[in-house]
Structures are given as structure tokens and as C-alpha cells.
């Protein structure tokens, strides 16, 4: 069976890759997560609230509506608190780091740390406008 050894090695390498990346296609997965954050902040900067809200986890959008007492599409660009905070962070949204672990991801920009989750075939934002707290979860303006 001359061809079984290379096949076994290839299978083990694929398994090791899947284990370390959490799932298939690490590069494409990271690029997709990065693209979701770039699209979110581009929508915020363009004042397209609906496009920004479409990229949010529904529970996070709902929480935002309750806090702002306004529809998500309005709050995400016009609210004096969250809207202003997102607009401020959108001004410098160049991505510096992307971390993917299984169905979860973290995209670090020059002005924010954004959390995402894989839902079906796409990445959706679970938390944005986040501030680091030592030894505790990030404090995020937008989160479920």
C-alpha cells in the first residue's frame, strides 16, 4: 500500500490544522471576520444604520434599542451616547489583529476591540465599542 502513508500523513495534517484553527479554512475565516467589522464601521461612518444593524447579533441590536429607546438603525448612528461612541471609533477602524477560535472571533482595530460569532455561513458582531478591563470581560457599549 504505497499510497496509504502519504494519505495518512495528509489526513493527520488536516486534523492538526483543524484543531489549531478551530475549524476549516483559517485564512478565509479570519478574512471574513475582518470583512464583517470593516463593513460595520464603514456603514456607521456612512450613516447607514440599517446596514450596520444587519451585521449585529439580534440580541445585541435589541439591547441597543432598549438602551437608546430608538430603533437600532437610528440608535447606531444618531444616539448621543452609543451613536457618538461608534462614530468616534469608526473614524479609525483600521484592523490590526484578528483572532479566530472555533465559532468565535475577536477583531482588533486601531480604536476598538470587536467580538464576533459564526452563525450559519456568516460572522455577526456580538459586541462592539469595547473597552478592556483587567481580569474581567470587556465593557462594551453594544452587546447582548
Amino acid at each position: 500500500m504505497p499510497s496509504s502513508a502519504p494519505r495518512t500523513v495528509a489526513a493527520l495534517a488536516a486534523l492538526a490544522g483543524a484543531l489549531t484553527a478551530g475549524c476549516a479554512g483559517p485564512d478565509a475565516t479570519e478574512a471574513d471576520a475582518e470583512a464583517a467589522v470593516t463593513a460595520f464601521y464603514a456603514a456607521v461612518e456612512a450613516g447607514d444604520g440599517q446596514a450596520a444593524c444587519d451585521l449585529l447579533l439580534p440580541d445585541a441590536a435589541e439591547s441597543l434599542e432598549q438602551d437608546a429607546e430608538a430603533p437600532c438603525a437610528t440608535a447606531v448612528v444618531d444616539d448621543p451616547n452609543v451613536g457618538q461612541e461608534l462614530a468616534h471609533r469608526a473614524a479609525d477602524a483600521a484592523v490590526t489583529e484578528v483572532h479566530v477560535a472555533g465559532t468565535q472571533a475577536q477583531v482588533v482595530t486601531a480604536s476598538d476591540t470587536v467580538f464576533l460569532a459564526r452563525s450559519g455561513e456568516r460572522w455577526i458582531i456580538t459586541a462592539a465599542a469595547c473597552t478592556e478591563r483587567p481580569e474581567r470581560p470587556y465593557d462594551c457599549e453594544v452587546e447582548a
Binding site: A16, Q106, P137, Y138
Partner: peptide, 25 residues
């Protein structure tokens, strides 16, 4: 070794779910 590699990713996944930083291996 496989447990440690898989565990690092699974632990990071849980960290991210809880809005915390992932860890390296």
C-alpha cells in the same frame, strides 16, 4: 499534545464568548 492544541482553541472560544481575550497555546 492534541488535547493541549484543541484545548487552547476551545478555551479561547469560551473566552471570546464571554467577551474576554483569547489565549495562545
Amino acid at each position: 499534545l492534541a488535547q493541549s492544541l484543541g484545548g487552547a482553541v476551545a478555551y479561547s472560544e469560551e473566552q471570546l464568548r464571554n467577551l474576554q481575550d483569547p489565549v495562545t497555546w
